[in-house]
Structures are given as structure tokens and as C-alpha cells.
Amino acid sequence: MKHNRMRAHFAGILVLLFAGVGQVTFAQESHIGGLTGEASRGKKLYRRYCVGCHGPLGDGRGENAPWIDPKPRDFVTGTFKCRSTPTGALPTDEDLYKSVTRGFVNSNMPSWLPLTRQQRADLVAYVKTFSSSFREEKPPSPLSMPSESAANQQSIQSGNELYQKMNCWSCHGKEGRGDGPSAQTLVDNRGYPIPPYDFSVGTRFKCGESNQDLYRILMTGLDGTPMPSFANGLTPAQAWDVVHYIRTLQMNVKRKKQTAENEKKDGGESKPVGAQPE
């Protein structure tokens, strides 16, 4: 229901073009902070950097896709792992920008940080053109994130209990080694096997490495994967407890300034801007 209005606009655009009322081209844009990305520029960059995996149609079927595991993202469905928005919703421009900037650990998607902010914004604008969803809908507001509670023993204990209660262990294992009873059965939305994250290896997480990123992964889920959103099941305070407990499962991580460092980085933590009211 909520999307009707946007769909109406989209249909309107089609009608408008179809009727030939002037050669109006609607700029496909992205807005990241004060930057405006343009799809026309993004297309050239996409051809240079991205097309080999994500393909000329953005369907994740580029010439290298058969050799890549995990498979490149299919942009056409509009389903994205790393979001600040609820499960099932479109990501904000900022979310996509961060993904391009950060890359995805344990995948072939590198960090495109060496590209300029403008170039990354342009890429986001172009990537959005592959899915009609971005013309039909607007991403909802990012989930709010109350400030982090103290990572004390009580919080960790509560997180441990929630880890059991929420069946996190079914996939991630009792000790967080990614070896739960359901681990072997998991597939992504294209049917390819996908292993649950093994906390003990201590690499950064799919969608970042700060506690805030971890909180967001818990509450938004990783759409397209078996990782659900816990927004319905956990209160914010409980989610922070789970975050604190998960940190204790990262055996191999030297725990120093774990959260602080990434907050400062380009493309790191910043105020959500993708869902500004139009």
C-alpha cells in the first residue's frame, strides 16, 4: 500500500515518455551527503570496473560470474545485503555507497575506496538503474540505532542467552564457529550454498566491522541470504547484548580500538542521509 504513490509516479513517467510529451530524460541520481551521483557518469565507471562480474545488464551474470563464489550481486531484483533499512526494503543511497566503498570480505568484491567519492556516488546512481524498484519506491527511513550500552558482563550474559533463544546457534554454532546443525543446508536467494559466518576467524563482518555495523546486520538482516532481521524479536537493548556476546566469540581478534577506528574512515559511520524526504 505504502508504495502505491511511488508506483503511480513511475507509471506516470512511462506514460509521459510513451506519449512523447517532449524528450524529457529524468536524471538517475544518487545522493550521498552533499554529493550528487549521476548514472550517466556511473555507467562509464561501471563498464570499466564492474561489468566483468555484475554483467552489462546488472544481473550478476558477467563473464566472470561462473568462476566466482559467492556469486556477484544481481542488481535487478533490488535485493541487497547491507542496508540500514528494514528487511525487504530498498537500501538507501548511503548504504550502497558504503558497500561500494567497503567491499565484501571473503568475496571477489573489493573495496573501491581508491575511487573518488564522486565516482562512487556515480556508480551508486547507475547501479540503481538496473532495478525498477528504485523508480517505483523510495527506501524507508533507516532503522534507528540507540547508542550502545555498556559491554559489561551482564550484557554479555544476556547476549549469550539471547544467542541461544533466538536460535542463532542453529546456523552459527554453539561456539560461533559457523557449524550449527542447519549450517550445511543454507543457500542464498539464487540457490548457491552459503556458509554462515564463523565468528572465531575474526575477519570483519560482511557489512562492516564496527559494533554499529554488527548491530545493523542483526536488525536489518542480510537480504538474499538466510540471515534474518531480528528487528521483531529483539529490543535495541537486547540487540546490543547480542553484539557484545558475539564479540566474545571472536577468539582471534586483537581487541584494541575495535570500534573507534572505522568510525573515522571515509565511507564509515555517518548520519543516514539516503532517505531524506523528497
Binding site: L90, G221, D223, P228, N232, G233
Partner: peptide, 30 residues
């Protein structure tokens, strides 16, 4: 009395995936 995650895998609608612990109120979607 256990936590499920309800995970529809649509082609034409957008996918979502929500965890639902025991005793929680019904999830409303469309």
C-alpha cells in the same frame, strides 16, 4: 516455543527475512 525465521523467496516481490521468537506478536506483511 522456538524461534523461527520466516523467509519468503519471491521473484517478483522483494525478499525479506524476519526472525520471530516464541511469544512475539504476529508479523504483518504484504
Amino acid at each position: 516455543p522456538t524461534t523461527h525465521n520466516i523467509h519468503p523467496a519471491p521473484q517478483n516481490n522483494r525478499e525479506w527475512n524476519l526472525s520471530q521468537p516464541p511469544g512475539s506478536s504476529p508479523i504483518e506483511e504484504s
